[in-house]
Write a protein that binds this DNA or RNA. Structure first.
Length: 781
DNA sequence: ATCTTCCGGGG
DNA sequence: GTGTACGGAAGAT
């Protein structure tokens, strides 16, 4: 029988010593169904030295065959390796895990230069070879079989796939969840601390499963039951791969039950690659992975991200600090607040899912990486999966991952700013400069020429790249850019709001992917790593920017600033003729990114603040937009910038700063506004210096807080003697305002950030600290 | 006083 | 488990 299916995910299993691939799908009627593919077999390649007899090597390899998973075939194939033709042996076996066993043995055979493509997961191999990607439809020939191991409507054996095509996405069932844990002593420990609340949110609203005082058995059981009954296609949550899933698994284990939430009976979430938890038949999406790409939010907590994206504003939700949870649980009168907080978190996760999932779906459609993995995979891995799929189409072998030594190279050009206030400033921006350079000069590891070269592009730093034929990067980038053009064109013609949103998500995803190629090429872990390539990209970029600045000057413009792929100009003649000249000279698109009515520079690079024509203020690089300054300092700097840019009155700004200092000395502030956040980037014992945040982190660890790599530590400076670091305390250990060292905040936070702006106007530190201070705060007047 | 280490935002 | 450039704080010497 022939039917159509919408692909959600892939997985595989070994049944009776043979691999079976499961394709989790939805049929035309909306039934959740699984297709079993039983014929596909794992394989890998051996790259053979030309001076050896290939048949001899073949025989040697065949001798390795083991009865449990025999080598079923060895074929000679012609492939390309970094663009050059090579002969390889394709070695096929039965059980996927045996690829690893044979790989190591084959690598030792004389005449085998290397083994390739032996580290690709089995179901991904299948999806690459058959050009199958999640969120597309397939038309397939199938045969129904009887199986009771799956929580799906029907089980089919897949006979043949006729075609892959795009069509409307069926309505996907999404379930969001969040757990609360009872821990009185710092970091939660699943061996000791029970789960007290499991909150879920779906299209139909919220639901909570509560522990019986400190006994969580029933709550966990009810949660499992709810997931099975609701049967979601997608489960979302925030940081669930690092916390909720491992915690629930351990608790279930301790209580002697199985966390059986998948579409395979008696399955449990299992940890996969990229640290994600894989739930058979469902897509387990950790939204934290998507949140990390939001640069505008410094401290990426669920409430901050939900607030920033407007799905649940902070003032409309309940917040309970983690260290207060036991208090709220134990106090009958306060418990409702805790329950509300948990439900708000689950709801936030659900609503964030609505924002991120459409974008994630498009990234999956481009890269082929299933959504659950994609949500956790780094940008580099997303690019790599796309390249691997494309390489297969070009008959290119996929290079192995390699250990490499770090080597630094020169980056983008930053033109020193012209200090002061400027009016009517145009910001000219090269669109997708690095991808364009990679295409124009055919840059990549497979096009790099080390010796003499007749028909090559030579970069400003001397690296040569052959002009023809196009390399892998150029081929793939051109496809992405071409497709984006077509999507944008289609978008203009589209009226349907839903279709338009899909197309918009797609064009954003295509842009994000293309822009990530340069960073990928310079990443030490990349299969297609090329330091020369990355170096050449930035070198051409520097040349383009400095030449563009020259052209602007020749045309009578004043160049105020420039960074990597943009220049700021004012005055001169016709801006459009400048744009035309630059874009025709380099063959790159350059456009007016924005126009500043007023923009302000100090002598420093990468720091400026501007007022756009529509009255919006951009602050770049200053403390006001950095995460490692306390909120109060950021507010002060923001207000000073606004006062200067909007009215140009320095006097008002000075008065305002004085009023803030006055309030601090009267202890008229909130402790939260004084917290300084920094990231712990190493293990605590690896630090050579005793910086304040490291000391605070150690104190937090001592208080039971789990401090690991990548954790953000918030601290305040308290009164006392000695070094600043001795006075740094984790904020949650400081309850009283009068413990705060207000003089530190005045001298090291408020005055420096204010002066960074006001110094340019001749204001001195003394004029902020001395003189009469109004009794009333500045803004109260 | 100067050097070193560490960190984060943004083009 | 994408890149480099840059400014600034605070410790180390």
């Amino acid at each position: 029988m022939i039917d159509n299916f919408f692909i959600l995910d892939f997985s595989y299993d070994v049944v009776e010593n043979k691999p079976v691939i499961y394709i989790w799908v939805i049929d035309k009627e909306g039934n959740r169904v699984v297709l079993l593919e039983k014929k596909f077999r794992p394989y890998f390649y051996a790259l053979v030295d030309d001076s050896y007899n290939i048949d001899e090597i073949r025989k040697e390899i065949l001798k390795l065959s083991k009865p449990y998973s025999p080598i079923t075939s060895i074929d000679v194939e012609e492939k390309k390796y970094f663009g050059s033709p090579v002969k390889v042996l394709k070695i096929e076996t039965v059980i996927p895990a045996y690829v690893r066993v044979y790989r190591d043995e084959v690598a030792k055979i004389k005449g085998v230069k290397s083994v390739l493509e032996a580290d690709i997961r089995f179901y991904m191999r299948y999806s690459i070879d058959n050009n199958l990607k999640p969120f597309y439809w397939i038309e397939a020939e199938v045969e129904e079989i009887k199986e009771n191991n799956f929580r799906v409507k029907k089980v089919y054996e897949l006979k043949k796939i006729n075609k892959l095509y795009e069509d409307k996405i069926p309505e996907l069932k999404v379930l969001a969840f969040d757990i609360e844990v009872y821990n009185k002593y710092g970091s939660p420990n699943p061996r000791r601390d029970p789960v007290i609340i499991i909150g879920v949110w779906t299209k139909e609203g919220g639901k909570q499963f509560l522990a019986d005082k400190y006994d969580d058995l029933r709550a966990i059981r009810e949660f499992i039951n709810f997931v099975q009954t609701y049967d979601p296609d997608i489960i979302v949550g925030y940081n669930i791969n690092n916390f909720d899933w491992p915690y629930l698994l351990e608790r279930a284990n301790i209580r002697g039950i199985r966390l059986d939430v998948g579409r395979r009976v008696n399955g449990e979430p299992s940890q996969g690659v990229y640290g994600h938890y894989s739930i058979t038949g469902r897509l387990n999406v950790d939204l934290y992975g998507f949140a990390q790409s939001i640069q505008e939010v410094k401290v990426k907590t669920l409430e901050n991200i939900a607030d920033y994206l407007g799905v649940l504003p902070k003032e409309k939700r309940t917040i309970v600090e983690w260290y207060d949870i036991p208090k709220y649980w134990d106090d009958e009168k306060k418990r409702d607040i805790l329950l509300k907080y948990n439900l708000d978190d689950a709801k936030s996760a659900y609503l964030l899912g609505e924002v991120f999932i459409p974008f994630g779906i498009e990234l999956t459609r481009i890269s082929g990486l299933p959504l659950d993995q994609l949500s956790m995979a780094s940008v580099g891995h997303r690019v790599e999966w796309l390249l691997m799929r494309e390489a297969y189409k070009y008959n290119e072998l996929i290079p192995n991952k390699e250990e490499r030594e770090y080597e630094s190279y020169e980056g983008g050009l930053v033109i020193s700013p012209l200090p002061g206030i400027h009016e009517e400033v145009y910001v000219l921006d090269f669109s997708s400069m690095y991808p364009s350079i990679m295409i124009k000069y055919n840059i990549g590891p497979d096009t790099l020429v080390k010796g003499e070269c007749e028909n090559c592009w030579v970069s400003p730093v001397g690296h040569k790249f052959r002009k023809e034929p196009p390399g892998l990067y150029k081929n793939v980038l051109e496809k992405l850019i071409q497709e984006r053009k077509e999507v944008k064109k289609l978008m203009e013609k589209t009226i349907d709001e839903y279709d338009k949103r899909v197309l918009d998500a797609r064009q954003r995803a295509l842009k994000v992917m293309a822009n990530a190629f340069y960073g990928y090429m310079g990443w030490l872990g990349a299969r297609w790593y090329s330091k020369e390539g990355a170096e050449a990209v930035t070198a051409w970029g520097r040349q383009i920017i400095s030449d563009s600045a020259k052209i602007a000057k020749e045309k009578g413009f004043t160049v105020i600033y420039g960074d990597t792929d943009s220049i700021f100009v004012k005055g001169g003649g016709d801006i459009n003729s400048l744009i035309t000249e630059i874009s025709s000279k380099f063959g790159l698109e350059i456009k007016i990114d924005k126009i500043y009515k007023r923009v302000f520079f100090t002598e420093n690079k990468k720091r400026y603040a501007g007022l756009t024509e529509d009255g919006k203020i951009d602050i770049v690089g200053f403390e006001a937009v950095r995460g490692d300054w306390c909120d109060l300092a950021k507010q002060v700097q923001t207000n000073v910038i606004e006062l200067i840019l909007k009215s140009g009155k320095v006097e008002d700004a000075i008065k305002y700063v004085k009023s803030v200092i006055f309030d601090l000395r009267r202890y008229n502030f909130r402790i939260e506004d004084l917290i300084i956040w920094k990231t712990i980037d190493k293990n605590l014992d690896e630090y050579d210096v005793t910086a304040p945040h490291v000391v605070a982190a150690k104190k937090a660890a001592k208080a039971g807080y789990l401090v690991s790599k990548g954790v953000k530590i918030g601290y305040v400076i308290v009164k006392g003697s000695g070094k600043i670091s001795d006075k740094a305390e984790p904020y949650f250990l400081v309850k009283e305002k009068n413990k705060i060292d207000v003089e530190y905040y005045i001298d090291k936070q408020i005055i420096p950030v204010a002066l960074r702006i006001l110094e340019g106007f001749g204001v001195k530190e003394s004029s902020l600290k001395t003189g009469g201070v109004d009794i009333l705060s500045f803004f109260k007047k």
